[in-house]
Simulated assay, not measured.
Amino acid sequence: MNKAKPIEELTQAYQQGFLSEQDYNARLAQLSDISDDETGANSTLLDESGQLIKQALKSDMAADMAKGAAGGAVIASVVPLVGTLTGAAVGAAFGAFKNLTKN
């Protein structure tokens, strides 16, 4: 919901003397509450998922999987009937296995 237009209209009504300061502040607070309800959950979800992705990309497993996927894609692109995507998937799985089994 675009809240700029209702806030502008509310401000104009206040400036023209149609609303008291108390009514203006109360209605402005109501508009802010609606904004928090509608966008607060989405922004919180995006913030949390962004942090999760950053943590995942910093992990050793992600690095090993990326190396394996790149290597698998390069090797599979020259092997007939295999394909780059299949090679990347196999390489990523190998990278994850390698990460899990190293001590």
Rank of each mutant, 00 (worst) to 15 (best):
G68F: 07
T39F: 15
M1I: 12
E38M: 15
A70V: 12
T44C: 11
L81H: 07
L100D: 05
D64W: 14
E21P: 08
N103Y: 05
D60P: 06
D36E: 15
G91R: 14
I7K: 04
I7S: 05
A63P: 01
A69E: 11
Y14I: 01
A56E: 00
M65W: 03
L46W: 13
A62Q: 03
S20N: 06
Q12Y: 00
S35W: 11
S59A: 02
V82Q: 07
Q22G: 07
Q12R: 03
G40I: 15
T101I: 06
G83S: 14
L31V: 02
T39A: 14
L57M: 06
M61A: 12
A88N: 09
Q51T: 08
D33P: 06
Q30N: 07
A96Y: 13
A41S: 14
K58V: 02
Q22Y: 00
Q51D: 04
L45R: 10
S49Y: 05
Q12P: 00
L28W: 04
M1T: 11
G40C: 07
G50A: 06
A73T: 11
V79I: 15
T84K: 04
L52I: 07
S49N: 07
F97D: 01
A63K: 10
E38W: 09
K102S: 04
Y24G: 03
D23K: 06
D36C: 10
A62L: 04
N2T: 06
A76K: 01
A92S: 15
T39M: 10
A4Q: 14
A4K: 13
D47W: 06
N2Y: 01
P6C: 00
S20Y: 00
P80G: 07
S77R: 12
Y14P: 00
L28Y: 01
K5E: 10
A66I: 13
T84D: 10
D23G: 02
A62K: 02
G72M: 09
F18N: 01
G87D: 14
N25P: 05
A41W: 13
A76Y: 06
A41K: 12
A73M: 13
A41D: 12
I75T: 15
V90T: 13
E38G: 10
D33R: 08
L85A: 15
A62T: 14
F18H: 02
G95T: 09
S32C: 12
Q30V: 06
K58A: 10
R27W: 01
V74Q: 01
L46M: 11
D64V: 03
T39N: 15
L52V: 04
K3Q: 05
K58E: 09
D23Q: 12
A29Y: 12
L52N: 06
A70I: 08
M1V: 14
A92P: 10
V90C: 12
A56R: 04
A89H: 05
S59T: 09
K5A: 03
S20T: 15
A93Q: 10
L28C: 02
D33C: 07
Y24W: 03
E48N: 11
E38S: 07
T11A: 00
A76W: 05
Q15E: 11
